[in-house]
């Protein structure tokens, strides 16, 4: 039922950024993901909700190639990427952020973003210092502004606050012309002000960049997404618009532990 809903909704656009057909992942006897079917249009912004252990991060790992799926196929802009290693998927424009920040503590903010931009360019290896006019340096500067870190340009990453580190985590994912980003709990541990900032950053992303966001904070998740998929015990069990999901009694029962307000 959910499948046909998604299909109807996307009929007009036709092109899919991400297609998952029957994706499953088992760890021994544990079924972390089972029969996941998902269609996400290019430029679409999707939230994936679910309680802890629902399989959300495993879903991300399967898409990025960090864990290969046990069954099923994954297509990225029409191309079957199921068997590609992670770095090949990155070169095709797929990015992710991590639940726990994976940063370079000994580098400055700008240098970190510069390396992220350089990583997907052909000139990854150079013994020369990059000029300020270097194309990747210019890209890094503009990403710096996009994630509101311009005041911390030359600050050592280790000395950034948690919230700023989460912003930098997003900056690294924006490097090098991404087409689709997987955000893994970007708001975890952020203060209310920082959450507002995060929502502004996500809503200001260029329209052609689609994403999936895993987020426990419904306030954030429902304000940055156009469509919501609910997961439970490794399965997708409901999809709908943010308004539908928010009002759904079953969702409230499982996810919020009963009807609220």
């Amino acid at each position: 039922m959910t499948e046909s809903l998604a299909a109807n909704r996307l009929q007009s656009t036709g092109a899919y950024a991400l297609e998952l057909d029957g994706v499953a992942r088992h760890f021994g006897a544990l079924v972390a993901l089972s029969g996941i079917n998902m269609r996400i249009a290019a430029g679409e912004r999707r939230a994936v909700l679910g309680s802890n252990g629902a399989g959300k991060t495993t879903l991300f790992n399967a898409v990025t190639g960090d864990f290969m799926p046990t069954a099923g196929r994954i297509r990225f802009f029409g191309e079957d990427i199921t068997d590609l290693p992670p770095h090949e998927r990155i070169r095709r424009g797929l990015r992710r952020t991590y639940q726990i920040s994976q940063l370079f503590k000994g580098l400055s903010v700008l240098d970190s973003i510069f390396l992220a931009c350089r990583g997907v360019s052909r000139r990854r290896f150079s013994l020369l210092r990059p000029a300020t006019s270097d194309v990747n340096m210019v890209q890094a500067e503009s990403i710096l502004n996009a994630v509101h870190l311009e005041a911390y340009r030359d600050t050592l990453v280790a000395t950034l606050s948690h919230g700023q580190q989460r912003q930098l985590e997003i900056a690294l994912a924006l490097a090098g012309a991404p087409r689709f980003i997987l955000f893994d709990e970007p708001a975890a541990g952020l203060s209310p002000t920082e959450r507002r900032d995060l929502v502004a950053i996500l809503n200001a992303l260029p329209r052609h960049i689609g994403y999936i966001i895993i987020e426990h904070d419904l306030d954030v998740a429902l304000r940055v997404s156009e469509y919501v998929s609910m997961m439970h015990n490794g399965r997708l069990f409901k999809e709908g618009t943010p308004q539908e999901i928010e009002a759904d009694p079953e969702v409230q029962e499982i996810y919020l532990g009963g009807k609220h307000g």
């Binding site: 240098d111 350089r118 990583g119």
Partner: peptide
């Protein structure tokens, strides 16, 4: 810079290509 970034987080550097 690449070398220092690898020192700090080889996993992320691999993920960056």
């Amino acid at each position: 810079m690449t070398l220092q970034a690898i020192r700090d987080n080889p996993r992320r550097m691999r993920a960056l290509g």
